[in-house]
Simulated scan of single mutants.
Amino acid sequence: QDNIEKATFMKVYLISQGRLSLMNLSAVIDPVAGYHHQENILWMLLHSFYHSRIVSHENTGVLKRMDWLLDLMGYIRNLAYKSTPLENVDLQECIDFLLWVFAASVVAWADHGAPLLIGLSADWSPWKHQTLLLELSEDHIGKHPADKFAVQETLTLFPRSISLLLAKDPWKEQTQKFIDWLISMMESPQEALSKFSTDLLKGRIFLTGSL
């Protein structure tokens, strides 16, 4: 467990700083889709998303972030419709995790208020130094009550955040793609969506008129 979390942290940190392409996030996310401490991973990803926004680098620019998110949406849809095979991971659990990743990225990228509200910091350094020294404890990362709160609150903030995100350039040009994707996900085979995923998507579907 500790090694998985250390490796994941190092990769998402490098991605958030622009030292690796955002497309490398897919290689980070896929192996942990069936990981049993997903909230720890989600906390790391949430910070990575936020920092990729506030760091000025060509690899983390808004168009790169938008392309990555659209790719993630397509990947989730393909999994739900079983056009992309999935091995050794429960389909519903995988989609639950990926939709939570989707929600976390939207909350981190929509505005500056939501990340601050859930306690995200512009400072990676305490975690970075611990990780580089290989002293990152499994009792620390993502397990503080404030970290768990931040991860859980992405679900609460998601409906408002996606409206804010799609109200600004260049995201608003993709509004119809987001709506079509949300609807197609709700129409996906029943066995693909858990109650968690259905509730998350329904919460957004009911507000599509505000987009």
Rank of each mutant, 00 (worst) to 15 (best):
L120P: 11
R65M: 06
I95A: 02
G74D: 11
I162V: 10
L20K: 12
E5H: 13
M44L: 12
L25Y: 04
V55L: 06
D2F: 08
T154Q: 04
L155S: 07
D96N: 08
V28I: 01
S16I: 09
I118G: 04
M44S: 08
A122Y: 02
Y50K: 07
L133R: 10
Y35W: 15
L98M: 12
M10N: 00
V12W: 10
D2S: 07
A33D: 03
T84P: 07
S210M: 10
M185R: 03
L155T: 07
S26P: 00
Q38S: 00
L72W: 10
D169Y: 06
P145M: 09
I179L: 15
H144G: 10
S197L: 02
S48N: 12
S137Y: 01
H57K: 08
W43G: 13
S48F: 02
P126E: 13
W127K: 08
K148G: 12
D147C: 14
P159Q: 15
K168V: 12
L98D: 01
E187I: 14
I29L: 11
N59E: 14
T175M: 05
V151T: 05
L182N: 13
L193G: 08
E191A: 12
E173I: 00
V28L: 12
S194E: 13
L157Y: 08
F178Q: 10
H51M: 01
S184Y: 06
E87S: 15
I54S: 13
L164R: 04
L98Y: 14
H57F: 05
P85Y: 05
S16G: 13
N3T: 04
A108Q: 04
L91H: 03
T84K: 08
V12Y: 15
M185A: 09
A146C: 08
V89L: 12
V62T: 06
S210A: 11
L79D: 00
H144T: 15
L211I: 05
A146I: 10
E58W: 14
S194G: 10
S161G: 03
L25S: 06
K168R: 02
Q92T: 06
I162G: 00
W43R: 12
V106M: 07
L42T: 09
S188M: 05
L116C: 05
M186D: 13
G18F: 12
T154A: 09
L200V: 09
L22N: 12
Y81R: 06
S21D: 03
W100Y: 11
E138A: 08
W43A: 14
D199R: 10
L63A: 11
F9E: 10
V28N: 07
K195A: 12
Y35C: 07
L207I: 08
V55E: 04
Q174I: 02
K177P: 01
S52K: 14
L117C: 07
L207T: 01
D67G: 03
S161I: 04
I95S: 01
E87Q: 13
K195L: 11
P170N: 09
R204W: 15
G34E: 10
T84V: 11
A104E: 08
E39Y: 05
D147H: 07
F97K: 04
D139S: 01
L201C: 02
H51T: 03
G61I: 06
P145I: 01
I4V: 10
A108R: 12
H57G: 11
